[in-house]
């Protein structure tokens, strides 16, 4: 009864599941400047952010360290109260109804775990079952599905402390989904994972989004996550939204460069090859930059023909360099 009453008081007017309107978060940071004297400085971690995310969309939320990403996510889960602005998730004001919202959202922090460290994985799921009061049949069905898709079958009886990082992350993702959340916040879900684990996690998230229309907000440093999962990307820096659009559009406003790391069998002068320019030489190792939109294949072929190659790898542009580029290209940006 009460839940209905609250819902009519705050109707979900649109299909937008996440709504932010001029949201701010200001922290007072006290710093000791003398023996007793303290200086109070205000830090605007989030400085007037507005955006909406419609139901079923998968959005990348990126920015350099300290840009305000985690602060935004903490406000969206209700554990931080905004200093200003309006914020709604599924029609609920998170900080005022944290517990009610918790039943409708799932959260995965890549660097933290919600699982019981000393106990077998299955024990954590039993706890989630009780905590979110998932009906028994639904719980069994969801667990079965997660176990199958995330390949957890052999891990259920293993204590969490014995799991590898990739296994633990899959375990954490399952724990966040057993109660069928409408919104899933993922904070760096692929951080530290190997290539195979990354691919598994991404595939699972893609399926989840298409099958269940779960709305996903994804924070990451890995642009490949965004490339493979999100049509839309938002870039935050210094607490402000500096870009909101497609990933292709982001590359347009900030054409990134990829880096080819080349190991030669001896020290040589900087490599000269068409389509790339040398940026760094360190002994037999050299770094070549080339446009992110170009293919690496012809450059590699040319290199292999003319130079004594031992090894090489391609590095994607990281988010810091994309944003740095953004400022360089648009000096008027805030």
């Amino acid at each position: 009864m009460t839940e209905e009453a609250t819902d009519t008081a705050e109707p979900v007017r649109t299909a937008d599941l996440i709504e932010l309107e001029g949201v701010e978060k200001v922290f007072d940071v006290r710093r000791r400047t003398g023996l007793v004297r303290r200086e109070k400085t205000r830090v605007r971690a989030v400085d007037g952010i507005s955006f909406t995310v419609p139901r079923g969309e998968m959005v990348g939320y990126i920015g350099p360290n300290g840009a305000g990403k985690s602060t935004t996510i903490k406000m969206l889960t209700g554990i931080l109260t905004p200093s200003g602005g309006r914020l709604r998730v599924a029609g609920i004001d998170p900080s005022r109804e944290r517990t009610r919202l918790a039943r409708r959202i799932g959260v995965v922090f890549g660097q933290r775990t919600t699982l019981w460290w000393d106990l077998p994985l299955i024990d954590s799921y039993r706890l989630v079952h009780r905590m979110y009061r998932i009906p028994d049949a639904r719980y069994r069905q969801n667990l079965e599905r997660c176990v199958e898709l995330l390949d957890l079958g052999a891990l259920l009886d293993v204590p969490v402390r014995q799991l590898s990082l990739g296994q633990r992350m899959r375990g954490d993702i399952a724990a966040a989904l057993l109660h069928d959340p409408e919104v899933l916040y993922l904070d760096e879900p692929t951080i530290g994972l190997d290539v195979v684990s990354k691919a598994k996690v991404r595939e699972f998230l893609r399926d989840l989004n298409t099958e269940r229309a779960t709305t996903v907000l994804l924070t990451t440093h890995d642009l490949t996550d965004i490339e493979q999962l999100c049509k839309r990307v938002m870039v935050i820096d210094h607490g402000r939204l500096v870009y909101d659009g497609t990933l292709a559009g982001l590359h347009e406003v900030a054409p990134g460069e990829r880096t080819l790391v080349v190991d030669l069998d001896r020290r040589l002068p900087p490599i000269e090859v068409a389509g790339a320019r040398p940026v760094r030489v360190e002994g037999p190792r050299q770094w070549l930059a080339f446009p992110a939109s170009a293919s690496a294949a012809p450059i590699v072929a040319a290199l292999a023909a003319d130079y004594p190659l031992v090894d090489l790898s391609v590095r994607e542009p990281d988010i810091e360099s994309v944003i740095a580029k953004m400022y360089a290209e648009r000096p008027t940006a805030p």
């Binding site: 900080s95 009780r130 905590m131």
Partner: peptide, 25 residues
Amino acid sequence: ASAPDADIQRRFLPKEAVVRLYAVV
């Protein structure tokens, strides 16, 4: 800040579910 909501919840939640959760913990 979430106190009023929690109180409402507490009243409308089946006690058994609460007991069960903390029993699992």
